[in-house]
Amino acid sequence: MSKVILITGASSGIGAACARHAVKAGHKVALAARSLDKLNDLTEELGDDNALAIECDVTYPDQQKAMFDKAVEHFGQIDVVFANAGLGASAKGTENGDVENFKEMILVNNYGVTVTAKHAIPHLKKSGGHLILTGSKAGHINIDGSVYGATKWFIRGYADNLAAELSGTGARVTNINPGMVDTPFFDEEKPDALRPDDIARAFIYAIEQPSHVEIPSIQIYPK
């Protein structure tokens, strides 16, 4: 059954790979990110009938509301929301880190996700849909002084809290926790890391499960 999927952080990396796999599987995608040029290129690749580009900075609630409104206006409904937008650390640890980077990571990785979830819930309760959050292996282990890791511990707990809130509504929540993935997130290639397509396959697996199946989390690490 074809689904309408809204993906934040969709201009590259995991988000773009999930969009490609989703369209290949017969779904429609609303693609949101700050980089409209990249989104337009991806939409052109996927086809205007299958994809919609929406410029959005997830740290601004008014932009997120407009994002949801545009997606519904274009496709008629939303069945899956993938809160994937995220930001990494500019330096390791707390002592060596930059406080402005701390602020931006928390705004994008945590605050932005809560805003996405708030706007998503009414649509997903209506459609019996699925909320997917991008967590990380960093939310399952301790990394010395890592503010980034702490933002992913937040996602781990928040996903469980959302699942409790949506219990009995027909909507589901899944937290996908990748290990290191070779994406533009890093400044140099990571040959031993996962590839975005690895995460995309897990994403498609989760959203295509029948309604009686719930997958609270998926851990996917490099071997």
Rank of each mutant, 00 (worst) to 15 (best):
K65V: 01
G93F: 09
A89C: 04
V81H: 06
D57G: 10
G93E: 08
Q77I: 10
F82R: 03
T94I: 15
D98Y: 11
T94C: 14
T114I: 09
N96Q: 13
G112S: 01
E104T: 15
I78S: 07
N84M: 03
D79W: 12
S90R: 11
V80M: 09
D98Q: 09
A53W: 11
A89G: 08
G112K: 00
V99Q: 10
F82H: 05
L87D: 06
V58S: 04
I78C: 10
A85H: 00
Y60N: 14
Y60L: 14
F75V: 08
D98L: 13
G112I: 07
E55S: 15
G88T: 02
F68W: 00
E104H: 12
M105E: 01
D62S: 11
V58K: 05
L87K: 09
D79H: 13
P61C: 07
V81N: 05
N109Q: 00
A66I: 11
M105H: 00
F75I: 05
I78F: 09
K92Y: 14
S90F: 12
H74T: 13
E104R: 14
G97Q: 08
A53G: 12
L87E: 07
L107S: 06
I54G: 05
N101Q: 05
A53M: 11
C56D: 07
E73K: 12
V108F: 04
T59H: 07
E104L: 14
N110H: 08
F82K: 01
A83T: 02
G76Q: 10
I78L: 09
D69L: 13
N109H: 01
F102I: 00
T94A: 15
E100T: 12
